[in-house]
Write a protein that binds this DNA or RNA. Structure first.
Length: 286
DNA sequence: TTCCAGGCTATGT
DNA sequence: ACATAGCATGGA
C-alpha cells in the first residue's frame, strides 16, 4: 500500500517508487507538462491530474481519483520489481537513476495515434502535433480531451494535413477510419501475438510502434521496443556485437522477460538524460 | 548545409 | 526473407 484516498485526492506515500518527473519524462506519454506553480500535470483521455510534491508524499489532484489509481498503477509494488531487475549489473545504476518510474495504464486509442506520430520524429514535435490534434477533442475543464476516433474520422483531409505531421497524416486518417469502425474492447483481450499482428495491419505501424502500443496501451510488459536510443544503450552497455533492431529486441526480451517494458523505460530515460557523446550505430568500437 | 528525431512503406533483389 | 531509398517537418 503506497497510497491512500482522501476525498478527491490521492496521497502517494512512498516516494521511492513514484516520481512524476521520472514517470512523465521517460517517453511513455506525451500530454504532460508543468503548470504555473511548477507542478507536473498529465492529461489522459478525458481526465487530468496535477501532482503536488510535499516533503514526505505526493498529492494527486484530479477529476477522477479512481481513474488515476489505475492510471499510475498504484497497486503494483515497483520496489519488488526493481529489486529483481537489479540482479542485472548493467541495469542497477540505471534503476537508481530513474527509481521513480512506473508504467502508466494509458488509453489504448490515444497511444495508437501518439506512437504513429512518433516514428522518425522527435519528442518536442510529437507533443506539438498531438496538442494540435486535441483541438477537436471534447472540451473539458480547462483542457481538451484526446479526440475519439469517431471525431477524428469525420475531420476533413485538411485537418490532418495541417497538423504538421508530415507524411504521417494519411496514416492518422486511415487509422481513424479503421478504429471508428471497431470497439477497442473487442481487441483488448486478444493474445499479445494476435494483437501485435492486428496493429501491424494498420498503416504506419511497424514492429517498433506496435511494441510501444502493446506495452503502453495494452499493458503487455514483455515487450521491449527498440528505437535509436535503445540501440545506443545496447551497443554502449550490453554488447558490441552487431545486431538488427529486431535481433536487439529479442536479445533484451530474452534477458528481461515479463519485466522487459519496465527495463526498457529505465534504459530509455537514462540514455536520454545522459546522451552518449560518441554515437555508434554500427557496433564497431571507436 | 547537412544530420537527426521513440521507423515505416514500397520496391527492389 | 532481407536490403534500402524516400519520406515531411523542424531544430541543432
Amino acid at each position: 500500500m503506497i497510497y491512500k484516498l482522501d476525498k478527491n485526492k490521492i496521497l502517494v506515500l512512498d516516494k521511492t517508487q513514484f516520481n512524476p518527473e521520472h514517470i512523465l519524462e521517460c517517453g511513455q506519454v506525451f500530454r504532460y507538462g508543468k503548470d504555473e506553480n511548477n507542478n507536473y500535470f498529465v492529461i489522459s483521455k478525458n481526465h487530468k491530474a496535477t501532482i503536488v510534491e510535499y516533503p514526505d508524499y505526493y498529492e494527486i489532484n484530479s477529476d477522477d481519483p479512481n481513474y488515476f489509481v489505475n492510471y499510475f498503477d498504484l497497486n503494483t509494488d515497483y520496489n519488488k520489481i526493481k529489486q529483481h531487475l537489479k540482479q542485472n549489473k548493467t541495469m542497477s545504476p540505471m534503476i537508481d537513476f530513474g527509481y521513480g518510474i512506473r508504467i502508466l495504464k494509458a488509453d489504448p486509442e490515444e497511444i495508437i495515434y501518439a506512437f504513429i506520430i512518433s516514428q522518425n520524429n522527435n519528442i518536442k514535435r510529437i507533443q506539438k502535433i498531438i496538442d494540435k490534434m486535441c483541438s477537436v477533442g471534447e472540451k473539458c475543464n480547462g483542457y481538451n480531451a484526446f479526440p475519439t476516433s469517431k471525431i477524428l474520422c469525420n475531420e476533413p483531409e485538411e485537418f490532418f494535413a495541417n497538423l504538421g505531421a508530415g507524411y504521417r497524416d494519411k496514416f492518422l486518417k486511415q487509422t481513424a477510419e479503421t478504429l471508428s469502425k471497431i470497439n477497442i474492447d473487442d481487441i483488448k483481450n486478444l493474445s499479445t501475438d494476435k494483437l501485435y499482428d492486428y496493429l501491424l495491419s494498420l498503416k504506419g505501424i511497424g514492429p517498433k510502434v506496435a511494441s510501444c502500443i502493446l506495452l503502453f496501451g495494452f499493458g503487455r510488459t514483455n515487450k521491449f521496443p527498440v528505437d535509436t536510443w535503445i540501440e545506443q544503450v545496447y551497443y554502449n552497455h550490453f554488447s558490441k556485437e552487431k545486431r538488427t533492431r529486431p535481433e536487439i529486441q529479442k536479445y533484451l526480451e530474452d534477458e528481461f522477460k515479463d519485466y522487459s517494458g519496465l527495463a526498457q523505460q529505465y534504459l530509455f530515460y537514462y540514455e536520454r538524460s545522459n546522451p552518449t557523446k560518441n554515437k555508434r550505430t554500427d557496433g564497431i568500437s571507436l
